[in-house]
């Protein structure tokens, strides 16, 4: 199962290494990781996407909680939430395909943020499914490269699901 885990941490040097070391030391892979300051500049929020069965993820969240610099851990599996990821895609559609490509970008509410002699750079934001669908659709047009920010997630207001 893919889990999105948000980790509220003290904004100190070395914290990222403690968190990532916890994954690597147990042979767990991090699929994506994004870190940024929160409203309190002393606190940062990490959003980590990882894959593992329930027992592994339970162990990961407990171990994260055990780290001294970790303030709070939320596994969004149990929480109603919204999530987004931003991707920049450089694609090089052939001359005849350009209109089609731009139309698709528009449908997915992507933005062209740069264009050169041979390529466009599209900025697209969305959840996992939307981004996967978009990438799938424009693959035939020729993707040169893309970069992803990693997922960020936030809980919906007051709609906590009861734990099973």
């Amino acid at each position: 199962m893919r889990h999105t885990i948000s980790v509220l941490v003290e904004n100190k040097f070395g914290v990222l290494s403690r968190v990532s070391g916890l994954f690597s030391g147990r042979g767990f892979n991090i699929e994506s990781l994004s870190v940024g300051e929160t409203i309190d500049p002393d606190v940062s929020l990490m959003t980590i996407v990882t894959i593992g069965d329930d027992q592994i993820v339970e162990q990961i969240t407990k171990q994260l909680n055990k780290l001294i610099d970790v303030i709070k851990v939320v596994d969004y599996m149990d929480v109603d939430h919204v999530e987004r990821e931003l991707v920049l895609i450089k694609a090089a559609p052939k001359k005849n395909d350009k209109t089609e490509f731009l139309k698709l970008t528009e449908i997915f509410r992507g933005k062209i943020i740069d264009s050169g002699a041979t390529s466009f750079t599209v900025e697209i934001t969305g959840d996992e499914k939307k981004i996967a669908a978009f990438i799938e659709l424009i693959k035939p047009f020729g993707i040169k490269e893309f970069v992803r920010t990693g997922k960020v997630a936030i809980a919906r207001e007051g709609l906590k699901k009861a734990k099973q």
Partner: peptide, 13 residues
């Protein structure tokens, strides 16, 4: 600090 991170409860520089 880097070397003992996984084998301490916590460490400081």
């Amino acid at each position: 600090v880097g070397m003992t991170r996984p084998c301490t409860k916590h460490n400081y520089l």
